[in-house]
């Protein structure tokens, strides 16, 4: 396995909201990241694209603190995520939202309860009662205010995705991770979901990191792109820069060609 070398993405603002320092991670002898560096600043929109199995979701979970690096560190506002004090950990959790690839909705709870549960757990039961209007506002923002009492299994795939987004945003996080927000959705719904993500980012000003396989949606979302291949993570810059990126693998992936340096993965 080729070692993975990351590049530092420095957009030159204040201190990074997330920083990966020489992080390495692997599973069962398979190396996903090696000495990987990354900086992400307040207000950034980073899109990770690339073929399935290239480690995009793993990188996302590492940044969210769901995985621990085998070496190196993941810093959140300068603090190592693996050694956060209880207070900082709570602050970190309140500032981070995530849409999971399979939505990860709590299927024994209704649409409304899925959001209330988040506030209950992070801020307490009383806060959840006091912030009923915030829950309704968030559900209204994603167009789900008419299905409050439905269970996730009773709503469509697009609505489930929107519920996942609403749950990720209900605490008004400063950093939101979207893992394949358009997976399994038709092109129209996909476009609507991405527009909604952008609209909500504009409204609440969060930093976002999105994983997708869909180049059209990547261009729509990207402040910056990173194209991930098994063995390598390439910083390709803005959507326009990515389109013109010289690496033949990037061009093959963008065009979706079967023939080229990328084998069928």
């Amino acid at each position: 396995m080729v070692g993975l070398k990351g590049e530092i993405m420095d957009v030159g603002k204040d201190a990074p909201i997330i920083e990966l320092k020489s992080t390495s991670l692997g599973f069962d002898g398979h190396e996903v990241l090696k000495d990987f560096d990354l900086k992400l600043f307040e207000g950034d929109s980073l899109v990770l694209v690339g073929p399935s199995g290239s480690g995009k979701s793993t990188l996302l979970k590492l940044m969210a603190g769901l995985l621990k690096p085998q070496s190196g560190a993941v810093l959140y506002r300068g603090h190592d995520l693996s050694t956060l004090s209880k207070k900082l950990r709570e602050e970190h959790l309140a500032e981070v939202g995530m849409l999971f690839q399979q939505n990860a909705l709590f299927d024994s709870m209704t649409v409304f309860e899925n959001l209330r549960f988040v506030i209950e757990e992070v801020e307490g039961i009383q806060q959840a009662l006091d912030r009923k209007d915030d829950i309704l506002e968030t559900l209204e923002a994603v167009g789900l205010d008419h299905v409050l009492d439905h269970f996730p299994s009773e709503i469509s795939g697009g609505m489930q995705k929107r519920l996942g987004i609403a749950r990720a945003l209900v605490l008004k996080p400063r950093l939101v991770f979207y893992d394949d927000p358009t997976a399994g959705l038709d092109p129209i719904t996909s476009r609507k979901i991405v527009s909604m993500i952008l609209e909500l980012q504009k409204k609440w000003g969060a930093t976002i990191v999105t994983v997708t396989n869909d180049m059209m949606r990547a261009y729509q979302l990207a402040g910056r792109c990173m194209v991930c291949f098994p063995g390598e993570f390439l910083k390709t810059g803005s959507a326009e820069d990515t389109k013109a990126f010289a690496d033949p693998r990037v061009q093959q992936f963008i065009r979706g060609d079967v023939n080229g340096p990328l084998e069928a993965l």
């Binding site: 769901l66 950990r89 981070v96 999971f100 939505n103 909705l105 709590f106 757990e121 992070v122």
Partner: peptide
Amino acid sequence: KISEQIDALKLLGI
């Protein structure tokens, strides 16, 4: 676990 609900719990500090 498969549908990442356990990860979602962890992200809520549970």
